[in-house]
Amino acid sequence: MRVSSLAAIVGPMISIAIIVPGAAAHEQHRRHYDLPAQELRFATRAVARRVGYQLVADADAIRGKLSKPLKGDFTVQEAIAALLEGQGLSFEIKNRTIFIRAAIGTRSLATL
C-alpha cells in the first residue's frame, strides 16, 4: 500500500516536472518587437534577423506590400503570421528558415 501511495504522490509531480519546463521553454522563444508599418520585405527581414533565421521570400509576391506595425512580445511564428495577415501570403518555417510565398489560389502582380 505504501508503494502505491508514493506512486500516487510522485507520479503527478513527475508529470508536472515534464510539462512545466516545456511551457517555460516556449515562453523563452518570445521576443519583443516594436516595428513601424513599412515595406513587408523589411519587416519580415527584421523579424528573421532578430531570431537568427534565414528568410526566403518570393520577391514578386511581397513586392509593394506594406506591413502593419508590430508591437509586443511574439514567437517567430506569431510575428510572421501577424505581418502576413490579410496579405494573400503564406509561410512555413523549417530548419531555422522562414519561407514566404503567395498563398495557394492567389497570384502575385507579376503574373497578372
Rank of each mutant, 00 (worst) to 15 (best):
S15N: 10
E92G: 01
A61I: 01
R49T: 13
I104R: 15
V56M: 09
T75M: 04
I98R: 09
H29R: 11
V10H: 09
I19F: 14
E78Y: 06
R101P: 00
K94M: 02
A48N: 08
Q77E: 15
R107V: 08
H29M: 02
K68W: 08
G22W: 06
Q87L: 03
L89S: 06
I98S: 05
I98H: 09
L35D: 08
L40E: 08
V76T: 15
I62V: 15
N95M: 02
L40S: 10
F74M: 02
D58P: 02
K94N: 05
P36G: 05
L55V: 06
I19N: 08
S90V: 04
G52A: 05
R50A: 14
A17C: 10
L40Y: 12
I104H: 13
S5L: 13
L66C: 00
T106G: 01
E78I: 01
Q54D: 12
A23Q: 08
M13R: 14
F99D: 10
L112T: 03
F42Q: 13
N95D: 15
E92M: 01
M13A: 14
A7F: 12
H32D: 12
R41T: 07
G11S: 13
P36S: 08
I18V: 12
G105T: 11
L66N: 13
N95C: 00
A46Y: 07
F99A: 05
G105C: 08
Y53S: 05
D58Y: 04
I18K: 06
L55E: 12
G64Y: 05
I100D: 08
R30W: 03
G52D: 12
T97S: 10
R2A: 06
I14P: 03
A23S: 03
R101C: 02
H32M: 02
D58G: 03
V47G: 07
D58V: 00
K94T: 03
Y33R: 08
L40R: 10
A61H: 06
I9Y: 11
E39W: 01
P69H: 14
I9S: 07
R50V: 00
I62C: 03
A110L: 06
N95T: 06
I80A: 04
A57Y: 11
A57C: 02
K94W: 02
V47A: 09
R107E: 13
M1A: 11
L66H: 10
E39Q: 14
G11Y: 12
I9G: 00
S108R: 12
F91E: 07
D60C: 06
L109Y: 14
S15D: 09
V10Y: 12
E92F: 00
R101N: 14
G105P: 05
A61W: 07
K71G: 00
K71D: 02
E92T: 07
Q87F: 04
G11D: 10
A82D: 12
G88R: 07
G64E: 12
T106D: 01
I14L: 15
V47H: 11
I14W: 07
R2N: 07
I14Q: 06
H29Q: 08
Y33V: 01
A59G: 01
L109H: 13
I100S: 08
L40W: 10
D60S: 10
D34F: 00
Y33P: 03
P21T: 11
E85D: 15
G105F: 09
K68G: 03
I100G: 04
R63M: 00
Y53D: 01
A82T: 13
S15C: 12
Y33N: 10
K71C: 01
P21W: 09
E27M: 04
P69Q: 14
A103W: 04
R63K: 09
F91Q: 11
R63I: 00
